[in-house]
Nucleic acid binder design. Structure first.
Length: 216
DNA sequence: CACCAGGCAAGTA
DNA sequence: TACTTGCATGGT
């Protein structure tokens, strides 16, 4: 196990080593929501191609996503993979979040976080990670996002040895950190950056900036 | 060639 | 509840 102070120190070390990650890339809430769906089990590089295609075709807006024939949408987002599922999910999610009961981004921002999370999770195609990514990065709510990297990170470094389920890992972070949107934003992005650039490419932990922090 | 990527839903035991 | 499988492209 680990103390709250140690967890904060790890964050500070990562931030000092790598700098701000500036997540989430995307200029609007809609773009972030679309990206969150397209990046499901998919590299961000491929998502960028898909989003770039959507922009080029003038499809990256709520009205067009709903009105465009699904076959066309599939073709446009094809580089991000799972295009049949994802085109369907995009249409469903956008129609629910932007049209149902005259919802709009401004109206959605009025809902409290718990209500919004339930709303998102009840949409077919949105699981816990996608929901929390949207809450944190599109709606700026202090919700900690857990992904495969996060689970590997806490397990490999023995920060948390409890149940490996999504909710449990999330609870570990949220109980041991101040509930702060900026902190959650940066921490998640830094864990992803660390895992992508050090924990895989460098076999040993010799170059890991957390070396002394974690006694490895 | 195999394996992975910023998951999720549906099916099985 | 816990595990398995399909979904699909592009990079290593």
């Amino acid at each position: 196990m680990i103390t709250k102070q140690k967890l904060l120190n790890i964050f500070q070390t990562l931030l000092a080593s790598f700098g701000q990650r500036n997540w989430w890339p995307g200029e609007t809430e809609l773009e972030i929501i679309v990206g969150a769906i397209l990046t499901q089990n998919t590299s961000w590089k491929n998502v960028e191609r898909a989003i770039s295609n959507m922009k080029a075709h003038g499809v990256l807006n709520a009205d067009t996503i709903q009105s465009i024939p699904i076959e066309k949408l599939e073709e446009i987002i094809k580089p991000s993979g799972f295009y049949k599922q994802k085109s369907e999910r995009l249409k469903r999610v956008i129609s629910i979040l932007f049209n149902d009961n005259h919802k709009s981004i401004e109206n959605l921002r009025l809902f409290d976080t718990e209500y919004l999370r339930t709303l998102l999770l009840n949409i077919n195609g949105i699981g816990p990670e996608t929901a929390d990514s949207i809450l944190l990065y599109a709606f700026n709510r202090p919700i900690f996002v857990v992904d495969a990297y996060t689970k590997r990170f806490v397990k490999n470094h023995q920060l948390y040895n409890g149940n490996n389920r999504y909710d449990n890992v999330q609870q570990f972070f949220m109980e041991n950190l101040p509930r702060n949107e900026y902190l959650f934003n940066e921490f998640h992005a830094l864990i992803v950056y660390l895992c992508q650039n050090y924990c895989k490419k460098v076999p040993e932990c010799s170059h890991c900036p957390l070396k002394s922090e974690l006694n490895i």
